[in-house]
């Protein structure tokens, strides 16, 4: 937390730093952060729970974010992802039982002219098809 305390509006940078270090923003971190920023735990909890990025528990070893937005839908993303989720046996936001991969929805990666698009552990992938997505998920679970 220390490097962020002198910044204006330090809460989001702090929460990002916590998640980068711990893989999530655990509930136990909330009162600690609140005390340092002179906020109530409720205020900090409110912020953590507002944003989709912050997790309560760590994700699987790999995170695959698949775009659900309109431009990707126009090139078949919906059927593609429904099939993939079914094969993995999980829903959106779910993690495979082996802890290998978490699949999250994302609403636009700015890859709208080369969809369907996804992001695998921060690496962008475009023009997904069944074979490409299967290979990504297979590799992530290996």
């Amino acid at each position: 937390m220390a490097p962020h305390l002198d910044r204006e509006g330090p809460l989001l940078p702090i929460l990002h730093a916590v998640q980068a270090n711990l893989g999530c923003v655990p509930e136990s971190a909330v009162p600690v952060i609140a005390k340092r920023l002179n906020l109530t735990a409720a205020e900090v909890h409110g912020v953590v729970s507002f944003y989709h990025d912050f997790r309560k528990a760590p994700a699987g070893r790999h995170v695959v974010k698949i775009c659900r937005a309109e431009a990707c839908q126009s090139v078949g993303a919906t059927a593609l992802t429904e099939r993939a989720l079914e094969r993995l046996g999980i829903g959106w936001g779910g993690t495979t039982p082996d802890g290998g991969v978490t699949v999250e929805p994302v609403y636009c990666l700015g890859l709208c002219a080369c969809g369907p698009a996804a992001m695998v552990d921060g690496r962008v992938v475009g023009r997904l098809d069944e074979a490409k997505l299967d290979a990504i998920l297979e590799e992530a679970r290996a």
Binding site: C67, A69, E70, A71, C72, Y107, C108, G110, L111, C112, A113
Partner: peptide, 11 residues
């Protein structure tokens, strides 16, 4: 830039 179909800001 959250709108689907837009990527000019990113570019």
């Amino acid at each position: 830039e959250g709108d689907s179909g837009t990527f000019a800001d990113r570019m």
